[in-house]
Amino acid sequence: MATSHPEYNEKTSATDVASAFASQIHNKIVVITGVGPNSLGEALALAIGGQKPSKLILASRTEAKLLEVAEKVQKLSPNVSVEAVVLNLASQKSVHTAASKIQSLVDRVDTLINNAGMMVLDRQTTEEGIEVQFGTNHIGHFLFTNLLMPQLKNAAKVSGPGLTRIINVTSAGHRLSPIRFHDYNFEGKKVPIEERPPEGLPPMFSPSAEGYNGWLAYGQSKAANILFTVYLSQHLANSGIVSYSVHPGSIWTGLSRDLDDAGYETISKTSNVWKNADQGAATMLVAAYDPALAAVSDPSAIYLSDCQFAKTAPHAVNADSAERLFRLSEELVGIKFAL
């Protein structure tokens, strides 16, 4: 499987991708999470907003920052309807409230871009007591996506197969850890070998005496983003909805706001190519709007990086793990979802 623009790469901008796929964006209703000033979410909103979508719904936890971006989009694209919805993914109550607000605004969602993410080094938990990176990066988006499923299915009924899409933003960091089904909260419980991190990682990736390591917890949450995509792509094909998972590349964003000096040093060594936000958002728009991606032919072919398909760690595309993660996620939100 290939994209329709093999020349796109790490230098391609979201602005250029949106322009190339303008006809796919025109009149669409788009929901983007993780929107704030100088972020990937802002870059997405500006690029999409410039191509005449029907409505842009921007969701994030800080209303003032949301409104700042909404006003910027509105100024540059005055004919686009822009809505700001407060969404704290670390609170399931907030997720329910945000989803209800969106359902009151629109009866369909053509594109859902689950872009929000966080990375912390010290143990924190969500309102429900879930390790905060797993709880925010995966569980929050899991609940949000499933609550909006009626709107997504409504869109697919009128748009045609493969034009309604769910984009889950992940990271190359997914390679650091599979899902620790026996210890997803990193509480020091014993896990089988297949749930342990890969061998040969530097000492900084070793769990503390209490069992926690922020890097591994981040890796687990990013593996979860891809496995969720695998499950969605398998179970929504008959509804005409496709899902892709995207690694934006290396970008200095608010994601790294909680890192210490050692964390910054580690991150700085992870890439030789550093992107600006417009370049970082480009792969998400290829996944969301490239007509060549209207079907998933292979459940493992759902991951893109630098605007092209890429390989994941095997643990991130295991169909059994995807099924198991979906069931665990249902338990953690207290709702069964029949796709």
Rank of each mutant, 00 (worst) to 15 (best):
E127R: 08
K52C: 05
S256A: 15
A99G: 05
F205K: 03
L76V: 11
G135D: 04
L46K: 13
N38S: 15
M149D: 07
L143C: 15
Q51H: 08
A319S: 08
A294I: 11
Q51W: 08
A90H: 09
A217G: 01
L89M: 13
K11P: 02
E71G: 09
Y289A: 07
D183P: 10
P37M: 00
V273A: 08
H235F: 08
L44F: 13
S271Y: 10
G240V: 10
Q133W: 05
I251C: 14
E323T: 13
Q234W: 08
S13G: 05
I335L: 14
L121H: 03
V120Q: 00
N276L: 05
A90M: 06
A287F: 01
L89R: 04
F337L: 11
G240L: 13
S256D: 02
P299G: 02
G41H: 06
T126Y: 03
F205S: 00
T33R: 02
S104E: 08
L293Y: 03
Y184I: 08
H96M: 10
S104R: 02
Q234M: 13
L232P: 06
I251T: 13
Y244H: 07
Q279F: 06
F228Y: 15
N225D: 14
N115S: 09
K269A: 12
Y264F: 14
F21E: 11
L89H: 01
K72C: 03
N318V: 06
L66G: 07
K336E: 15
K55A: 14
V31P: 03
A116N: 00
E323F: 13
T125H: 11
L58E: 08
I25D: 08
L147Y: 09
N185T: 01
Q51S: 00
V85A: 02
G280D: 00
I113S: 11
E323Y: 10
P202M: 14
E265K: 14
Q103C: 04
V273Q: 12
Y264H: 14
M119Y: 13
F181W: 07
S60C: 09
G49V: 13
A209R: 07
T12Y: 04
L76W: 06
V17Y: 10
L285P: 04
G263V: 03
V82R: 04
P314G: 01
S91M: 05
L304W: 04
S245L: 00
H174S: 02
F326Q: 13
D298R: 03
L227G: 00
I251G: 11
K28H: 10
H141Q: 14
S271Q: 12
S100K: 12
R165N: 05
E195S: 10
P78G: 01
D320C: 01
E265T: 08
Y289V: 06
P178Q: 03
E330S: 07
V85D: 00
A59Q: 13
F337K: 06
D260R: 00
N238D: 14
P178H: 06
N154S: 15
L285R: 03
M118T: 12
A338E: 15
G162L: 11
N185F: 03
M118L: 15
A316M: 01
K65M: 07
L339M: 15
R108A: 02
I251D: 12
N137S: 15
A209T: 06
K52S: 12
P53E: 13
L105H: 12
E63P: 10
L121Q: 09
R180F: 02
D16A: 12
D290F: 01
S245F: 05
A59N: 05
S256E: 08
L201N: 12
